[in-house]
Structures are given as structure tokens and as C-alpha cells.
Write a protein that binds this DNA or RNA. Structure first.
Lengths: 184, 184
DNA sequence: GTCTATAAATTGATAGAC
DNA sequence: GTCTATCAATTTATAGAC
């Protein structure tokens, strides 16, 4: 414990943040590790020192979402009655998108990230559980479509330039309102 | 007019269809012209014989959407009153997504296609007009958010595996219903 | 931990034979 | 109109000096 920990993982975090910016702009396949290194002002080998492969970098990006979904499901399962559970999930998802707008966007839109998710059973399973919980037992076509539209819309709304100027609190309330109009 | 026209542009159409399949699966940047040629069983140079560049191929894919939006706007502008105009646009968009599910999906989710759209003023302008028409004059934050969610959700719903088994007519009615719940 | 240099494969794109 | 062969550039990834 002799070393100062103030900078522990600082480079790692900067790489993740820069990579995420570029992934949102150009997609994962459209972003090379060279571009990430260039924007950060380091050598490509420095990026590889922190992440063994490009896939490992993507995995590191989606990990927090897996954690968040895990906590969310724990809270939902503790809630009494399906109505309360749905409410917990909706609020948790909106909160997650607000806190991690860019990750949410690439997670839903980028085929490379979707492949990484399929390769992360933890995340894939939790996503499926969240969807099933919102879908409910024996869902009607109406609810299936509403959930599909809401899910995609929610995940991408956080990075929609049209909404960039809205204060976070307004966006939160309106996303919750939209969710309830569609899912409650 | 001596030549039979039965096969006119047949190869071209097959290339476009195969490319679109792959773009949906792996994204545009994640799909090489070699992969397209391989799946089609032709040489890469054959693809280049039909499309000078990868960009030209993308342009050819989004062109029908630009046409559809053009017709849509003409019909909307002919409608009397804003309410009727909104109705025309909603119905037209739903119809477009149903008819061109894959194109709609890559158009909204893929950064490479979005770049191509920005480079096609015709399409960019029409998309903006459609959005503005749905947004209406002096839109509230509530409507901004609802439109953002609906727009992303609609464009991606056509390729959502969760909805793959729904008959087209059911999907049409439910998408229209979702649109009206959010935008009317 | 960061760098330079490099390897091996793949990319978009072109030339030219048939 | 389709092919083989090839190009220059770029990709992911590694080796090894400092």
C-alpha cells in the first residue's frame, strides 16, 4: 500500500471514455484502436497495455450496465406485486440511460456491441429478464410492440441531438411519462 | 430495345439485397465488399462493376427511402389542417417501415449510413421536414421526447426479433396505435 | 507504463484477361 | 459482365527497447 492510488486506473478510464465517444460517433467497427490512441495522444501499444483486445475493451464498457441491471433486478424481485415491479424496472432503466447515455446508445444500436453482449451471458440473461418482466405473462401483440418501441426509443434517446438541450430532470420526467403511456 | 429486359439490373438488385442483409447483421463498417461477394458467390470485382464505391452502394440503398419520404411529404402538404397532416405522416412512416424494414433499421442505427444520409441533402432535408411536421410549432419537451422515442422505436421495430412472428397486419395496427398514443 | 517498429491479415479499390 | 491478380492503406495485435 505504499503507492499512491490517486491515479490508479486513470489511463484505463480515459481510454474507455475516449473509445466510447468514438464508438458513438463512428460505431465500434468504424473506430480503430489507432484512432482511440490518436485522440488520447498516446501510442496504440498503450491501449493494448490496458486492454488485451478490442473485444476486452468493449466488454469493459458494457460491464457497468450488467451490474446496474443486476441491482435493478434484485430490487424488482423484492417489490410486491407485478405493478410495483414494473415501476421499479421502468425507473431503473430511465435512471440507467440518463447516467450512461452513450453506453446505452451503442448497446442497442451497434452490432459489434450486440455480439459482445451475446458473448457476456451475464448481461444477455439480465437483459432478457428485464424484458420479460416488462412484457409480463402472456403478453398481447399490443404490449409486445409497445415494449419494442419503448426499449429502442429509450436506449437511443439519451444521445439524440434533438434532446441534447433538455435539462436532465425534464428528460427524466418525460421519459418516465412516455414509459407509463406505453407500458402501464 | 432489342435486348430482353427481364434480367436488367438483376445482379444489381441481388447485390443490394445481400448487402442489406449483411449490413443489418454486422453493420456497414463491419461488412466488407468481400463478404458481400462471397455470400453472393461472385468475385469482388463484380460488385465493383455495379457500384463504383462502397458509398455508392449505400446511396443506392437509401435512395428509395428518399423517394418515399418525398411522396409522403407531398401528400402531407396536400392534407387540410395539421391534424390530418400528422395522420398522413404517421401512416406513411409506418407503411415505409413495414415495406423496407431492414433499410429503416440501418438508416437509424448505423453511423456509416447516417454519414451517407448527411451527404444526401435530398434525404436529410426530407427527414428533417418529416420530423418538424410531427413535432409541430413550438413543441413542448414532452412532445420532443415522445417523438424521439417513437422515431427510434419505429425505425428499429421492423427488425426486432421479438416482433418477427407477428403478422404484418397486426404489426401495422399496433405501430399505428403506439404512434397515436405518443403523438396525437 | 509508454514508446517505436513490425508482423500478418484484411480493407477498399483498380487493371486487365477472357 | 465476370473473372484473377494486384495495390496501397489500414486493421488487430505483438515484440522488445527505454
Amino acid at each position: 500500500m505504499a503507492k499512491p492510488v490517486g491515479r490508479r486506473g486513470e489511463t484505463r478510464e480515459r481510454i474507455l471514455a475516449t473509445a466510447l465517444d468514438l464508438f458513438v460517433e463512428h460505431g465500434v467497427h468504424g473506430t480503430s484502436l489507432q484512432q482511440i490512441a490518436d485522440r488520447l495522444g498516446v501510442a496504440k501499444a498503450t491501449v493494448y497495455h490496458q486492454f488485451a483486445t478490442k473485444d476486452a475493451l468493449i466488454q469493459a464498457l458494457v460491464q457497468p450496465v450488467a451490474d446496474t441491471l443486476g441491482e435493478l433486478l434484485t430490487r424488482a424481485e423484492a417489490a410486491a406485486g407485478r405493478e410495483a415491479q414494473v415501476e421499479v424496472v421502468i425507473e431503473g432503466l430511465v435512471e440507467m440511460v440518463l447516467a450512461r447515455r452513450q453506453i446505452a446508445a451503442v448497446m442497442h444500436g451497434d452490432p459489434a456491441v450486440e455480439a459482445a453482449i451475446r458473448a457476456t451471458p451475464e448481461l444477455a440473461v439480465r437483459s432478457a429478464k428485464v424484458k420479460d418482466l416488462l412484457l409480463g405473462p402472456d403478453p398481447s401483440p399490443s404490449r409486445r410492440v409497445a415494449l419494442s418501441v419503448f426499449n429502442a426509443g429509450l436506449m437511443l434517446s439519451g444521445t439524440d441531438p434533438e434532446l441534447a438541450e433538455l435539462p436532465e430532470e425534464i428528460l427524466r420526467q418525460e421519459l418516465l411519462g412516455t414509459a407509463r403511456r406505453l407500458l402501464v
